[in-house]
Design a binder for these strands. Structure first.
Lengths: 217, 217, 217, 217
DNA sequence: AATGAATGAGCATTCATTCAT
DNA sequence: TATGAATGAATGCTCATTCAT
């Protein structure tokens, strides 16, 4: 677990506007090119900040990347918190989640791409550092919703809540990537014949049928 | 579909042993570091072959990479073909698939890592080139099995076969990564509490329950 | 006509001394080895500058080469402008040109070598890019002088001014190379028996006799 | 002076047809790309001979180049010998030379290109090795013709025969390049406005006027 | 003698990081 | 604190030459 900051204190002192310029430029760069291929000098130029400054704010490239990832996770967490707090039926929740994925994947293609990059970076440290916060939140939310569903009788009791949450997230995670990442978009097309998952209602409907039935007693 | 070779004819002429040394070295390199960061000179050294030779066999780095990926896909295809040809009940097939994933992911960690790397390289050309070969086979197999299931009454008829195949593969793909890739391993642990999906029977059992129920009328 | 700069603005910002170190090192390298064989890393070392810096100043090897050539052309142009502006008799002008060639070829052997290399690089783009600036100036100067000669009666009127200028330059160009370039030096020796055109006055005298007579009515 | 062979005895033993295949392929390669950039492996492929064989015939790349140059010089020498032996008036001879240049430059662009490459190769050994044979022949021919002209009264006696021969060759050499080499073609265009020296008769006429007058008493 | 696969030093170019101003 | 010029190690790829068959 790694919740510590990855930037120097100086980064907190600069103006919000400058901070956002940096975050945006770096997010774009890393999302488009990945960590290894992302270029610090390009980020500096795009953010209209000097490289020297960047190195005043961050120890090195990796720390800038980690900071960016933190930010993108925070953005996603906001969305998730809304879903988590509602008291609805699990299937309603699932529908909300899917619709949120559809909406936010289109609005924040870069964040999703970045998340995708993150999941396959060949640096174990990155992976384990962030999997925790990112996933532990969704894991908890899904598991609680499933347990709640068991109580209300919406979910059969003979499946393991934690594992079911995992399966659910497998579906959601790939669905999310299918809206934003090259490989997954292509894959979606191969499976369903559609260019991108454009018929959102169809996707919602099919997913719900599948999941509802999977949970049903 | 892109089944053409990505190597020069010379690569077919060298000894099987040398060819395998190269394949292994390159698979290891690309699986660990990805395409961009994979180092041709390192591969040559690891394979005990000169760089010059490598460039006699492959036009460039990309073609070596593509060749490697082809090999890994072929390996997977063999497994899949066995599953495809059997005439069993869809649930038996699903079980077989999961057990195959469990077995081969452990045996061929590198291939799975390579596949994972491939899915997140930010190169659209790679994406479309490989999504097709990689996924079109599984897509077809799953869809046919589902359609067969509809006929035999094992699968409800109101779900879209193609989309259900996609959902199924979402689950399998992530499961596969969970056995071999750092991020996904960590994520599995967060969801289920287990270090790696070691309790294979538990995984099979839970997946089957979920999927069986999802398909059930 | 290609008078645009071939360097990045950064090259204008560095100290004159450093700029000259680079120009000198590169001129030497390219003059001795030609474009293809000239080595960027060697130039950097000779100029006591890092390769990285060189690439901050120039987009690539070709642009460094073009810049060098521009410099050498500018040097020559200064000399030519003096000759051009004078209002003298064409034969006086010819004598001045020859003496200028003699003087400058000895002083700037490298520039002449560079020009020689340039004329035979098998790169059409280089050729057309520079032939124009280099030659169009001399072409105009010679042609105007000849036309002026026709008016004053020093030059017969039945020869084509432009073509005569071309023939004149043929002689001058080879003369110039004869002072600086290995092949042409050897060739001069074979023709005249002299090691290098050392007896400058003899060369002047003979050339003048030949050209004067050629122009004479 | 270097008249020795630059190939191993083995090259004399192979079939004439194979020898010519090699000569042709190498001439093409070196004429188009120059010595440094000419590629031995490409030559072997083009000549349908193995690289190994090439190295059986020639010590190294340089010796292959030198051999090629020898051949091209021999070709030119044949032409020159014809001119040399005729007993004509010097101006008729000059006309013949120009027409020969015009004809052969178009027919054997590669040989001329090769000769051009040779004159600027930055390897002193090349230069001095070949200047001798190539130029000493023309030097002698031109000088003798001029001396003959002096006797017959066609050439003024106060010019140095050797130097006049040199000036003559300056004109011819550049004229030759103007028909075959990129830089010189461009330069010809700048001076005369014509794309290539296509109006051959005009060229002959103007050259003759110039040279005739230059020699005239 | 002929082959052509193998070699590996060499080169243009990139980019994370430093540091003088 | 901010700047951005400077650094140089690192990498994909080429090609003259060798040598086992």
């Amino acid at each position: 677990m790694d919740l510590q900051k990855h930037h120097k204190p100086t980064f907190d002192n600069i103006s919000k506007e400058k901070r956002e310029r940096i975050i945006n430029a770096a997010t774009m760069e890393f999302a488009m090119k990945g960590f290894e291929n992302g270029n610090i000098n390009s980020i500096a130029k795009k953010a209209e900040v000097s490289v020297g400054s960047l190195y005043k704010y961050f120890e090195n490239k990796q720390d800038l990347f980690l900071t960016i990832v933190q930010y993108s996770i925070s953005s996603m967490e906001e969305l998730l918190l809304n879903l988590a707090q509602s008291d609805e039926d699990i299937l309603l929740k699932v529908e909300k989640i899917i619709r949120t994925i559809q909406k936010s994947s289109k609005e924040n293609v870069l964040l999703v791409k970045l998340y995708n990059v993150m999941t396959s970076e060949n640096n174990p440290r990155f992976a384990s550092q962030f999997a925790y916060e990112m996933e532990s939140m969704t894991a908890r939310i899904y598991r609680l919703a499933i347990e709640q569903g068991k109580k209300t009788g919406d979910v059969r009791e003979d499946i393991d809540s934690a594992f079911a949450a995992y399966l659910l997230d497998n579906i959601f995670m790939n669905l999310q990537f299918s809206y934003a990442c090259d490989y997954y978009k292509e894959r979606f097309k191969i499976y369903t014949g559609n260019d991108t998952p454009q018929r959102d209602d169809f996707v919602v409907e099919q997913c719900l049928k599948f999941i509802k039935s999977a949970f049903k007693k």
